[in-house]
Design a protein around this nucleic acid. Sequence first.
RNA 1: GCCCCUGUAGCUCAGUUGGAUAGAGCACUGGUUUCCUAAACCAGGGGCCACAGGUUCAAUUCCUGUCAGGGGUACCA
Length: 580
Amino acid sequence: MTIVEIIKKELASKLELVGIYEGDVEISLEKPRDRSHGDFSSSVALASAKKLKRNPRELASELAAKLEFDTNLISDVEIAGPGFINFRLTKSHKLGQMLDLWNEVGAVESIKTGNNKRINIEFISANPTGPLNVVSARAGSFGATLVKLLKATGYDAHAEYYVNDAGRQVMLLGRSLRARLLEIKGADFEFPEGGYKGKYITVMAEELIDLDCDAIQAASQVFNDESFQRVTAPEGTAAQWLELPEEESAKSFSKYALMKILTWQRQTCRRFNLKFDTWYFESELYESKRIERAYDKLKSNGVTYSLDDAVWFRSTDYGDEKDRVIVKSDGAATYFLADIAYHYHKFQRGFEHAINFLGPDHHGHIPRMRGAMKALGVPDGWLEIQILQQVNFVEDGKPIDMSKREGQFVSMDALADDVGADVAKYIFLTRKPNSHLDFDLDLAREQSSDNPVFYVKYAHARICSVLRKGMEQGMDPGEPDIETLKYLSDEHELALISELIRLPDVIAGSAKAREPHRLTLYLDDIAGHFHQFYHNCKIVSDNKETTLARLQLSLVTKDILARVLGLVGVEAPEYMGDKD
RNA sequence: GCCCCUGUAGCUCAGUUGGAUAGAGCACUGGUUUCCUAAACCAGGGGCCACAGGUUCAAUUCCUGUCAGGGGUACCA
């Protein structure tokens, strides 16, 4: 029985003595926000008072007087406020929980409720038409951390990136590159309507113009080591591609541009330490006929109809506001149909659950996508869509236009150059997913102590320093153990311990709610409690017992900071350089 | 018009699936170093939790409406 169950059971049995039986009220037991209210708090007296027509505070004190607990577990029961019953755990119980964390047993194990269920988490999936921008950085931070959180809670989590390499956009990209190349050569050119005007296209064209056949092939070799076999460079040189008929020419340029951009995107992901188990290519869906098969299945399930030379999916049957085209009047599949085939294949690949991170501009796709899955016989709730709200980047006091086509956007690489990938990831994870985020680049570039990451990193580095100091004095804390830790008694030590043992709850809670930002809040709390402990308790002193106990507490704190920083994807430094 | 997100300190945001006196950072005012890293710590001021109803013993939290800001509403992806 857990401590929570023990308290609830005892409350239930004493409630019967005053006339409240199982099912009459819910026996609540929660962790109060304010630590002075104890480790657990129950409001049953408040909830029962009306039924019994009694004063809640009196009822609470009557109950509290009847409660009996093992004094090794509960040290104190008190009445507070309008009728709360507060419980305090004993120091030895808390120390035991902390040792469980260190040894990775107990609560850290019991939150692994996933039973190795296979979950697919798709994130970023940016169009391969330009360098990854900061919107993807936010998605990457959330996605990568959620994957780690799900693993920590016992799921078999699989990170996936979907590459839209088959659509019209990639052709448009190729035409844009071709136009820029002609422009550089001083030839006549017509920039395609709606083409990509980003500077990176011009840069790509400038580089391409001097490349010979071998160099172009060599550039595609970076993909040989991974599942990117389908990404290849076109034969020949840019000059030769220009000689080809219009359509062929555009194809060669598209192929080259796709190869280059995927190279950039993958490098950027590596720089942010975002790892994907699978890069899934849309073109594969066409080649494997999965699009046709998904289409046939929808058709045979009777959820499609033809109108105006196009084929429509009857998504209004599933709560969408209008029906959607899946095959255009020119006979081509829409992106939506490809997406249906993609998700259906995810399901067929054996994932028991799929989470998909999308930008706010795609929220309208949710009803139709859910509808399509249902029409294909995929269970309700299989596809979970998480909307990540927009990031507004502010520079010189004004927002930056993030449209790729206008070419004005902040790339992930630029962000990493300015503030570092660590800092960027951490900042993205300080906000909850569905809140809009204003990111002031000028402020972030300062790299000053205003930066929340440094506070946490500093705590870790400071602990390392203290541990080194201890070793210099011949104080080796060794493995934390109850006999040594029992000498801890200062309020700052106990406050830190109480904070540390929240770890399993924090991990389980943020995994379940898909709210990785709780991790950074937790890190900030831990760092804060450590700094306070440090200032109020001299760690390395003449008293051997106290010194070793405090060093062990520091060691556990360091371990937990490092673990959570690992989930966030941020390095835990051993040293902190002097500030300028 | 319809759909989604948001509205909490001067600013940026938390508030653990309804709890007690609503918190943190930044900014502002003042203090702490013969001592393990001052990127730290301590103290102080600062609030109609957008507004109005409703549910509840209890609402910043849940429901409805209003107002304000952002995004979306394609045979684009």
